[in-house]
C-alpha cells in the first residue's frame, strides 16, 4: 500500500475541527441525557412525596408516643452502684455454688414423671451433689441420667450404683448419681 501523503502549506490546519464539533455535540447530547434523567428522578420524587410525608407524620406520632411511655431510668451513679452489688453477688454465687433451692428446682424440671428422688446430699463448698433417684422402670432413670449429662448446670453426671429394692407391690430400681456443678 503506498504511503499516504500529508504535506500541507496551509497555516489554518483545521483537521481538528470535525473532532471538536463531534465532541461538542457529544457533550450537548450527554447534557441532554443527564437533564432527562434528573427530570425523571424529580418526577419520581414528586410522586413519592405525599406517601413519604404521610410516613414521616406516622413516625413522628409514634416517636411522640414512645417518648411519652419512656421508662425513667435511675440516675447513672445509682445504676453503677447497683451493678457493683450484682457483681459482688455473682462472685459469691460463683465461689459458694448455687443454693439448694435453685438446684432442686432444676432437678425437678429434669426428672421424668415416672421417677422420684429418695435422697439428696449437697456439698455446696465443693459443688457436689449425691442423689438417689428411684423408679419402677429403669428406662425412666436412664432418661434422667441423660438429661443430667446434657444440662448446663452440671459439668459431670456419674452413675455410681444401680440397685433393685422391693416396694409395696412392685420392685423399684434405684440409681445413685454423683453430680458436679458447672461454675
Amino acid at each position: 500500500m503506498p504511503v499516504m501523503l500529508r504535506t500541507n502549506f496551509s497555516r489554518h490546519n483545521a483537521n481538528w475541527v470535525p473532532a471538536l464539533v463531534a465532541g461538542s455535540w457529544g457533550l450537548v447530547l450527554a447534557a441532554l441525557v443527564a437533564a432527562a434523567l434528573l427530570f425523571d428522578q424529580h418526577a419520581q420524587l414528586e410522586n413519592a412525596m405525599p406517601h413519604l410525608r404521610a410516613q414521616l407524620k406516622k413516625l413522628q406520632s409514634h416517636h411522640a408516643h414512645l417518648e411519652k411511655d419512656k421508662v425513667q431510668l435511675p440516675p447513672h451513679a445509682k445504676l453503677v452502684a447497683l451493678q457493683a452489688r450484682v457483681s459482688v453477688i455473682n462472685g459469691i454465687v460463683a465461689s459458694k455454688g448455687r443454693p439448694i433451692s435453685e438446684l432442686l428446682s432444676r432437678l425437678e424440671s429434669l426428672l421424668p414423671k415416672q421417677a422420684w428422688l429418695t435422697s439428696l446430699h449437697h456439698r455446696r463448698g465443693r459443688g457436689e451433689l449425691e442423689l438417689v433417684a428411684a423408679a419402677h422402670d429403669v428406662g425412666a432413670l436412664t432418661k434422667f441420667l441423660k438429661r443430667l449429662e446434657g444440662d448446663p448446670y452440671f459439668s459431670q453426671a456419674l452413675l455410681t450404683r444401680q440397685s433393685h429394692a422391693k416396694g409395696k407391690d412392685k420392685s423399684v430400681v434405684e440409681f445413685d448419681i454423683r453430680l458436679v456443678e458447672r461454675r
Binding site: 503506498p2 499516504m4 501523503l5 504535506t7 496551509s10 490546519n13 483545521a14 483537521n15 475541527v17
Partner: peptide
Amino acid sequence: PPAVIDMAACYRHNYFAPQFEP
C-alpha cells in the same frame, strides 16, 4: 480558511493509491 493546501500530485497519489498494484 483553507484546511489543506497541497501539491496536486500528492492529492492524486492519495486518490489513486487504492488502485495501485503492490
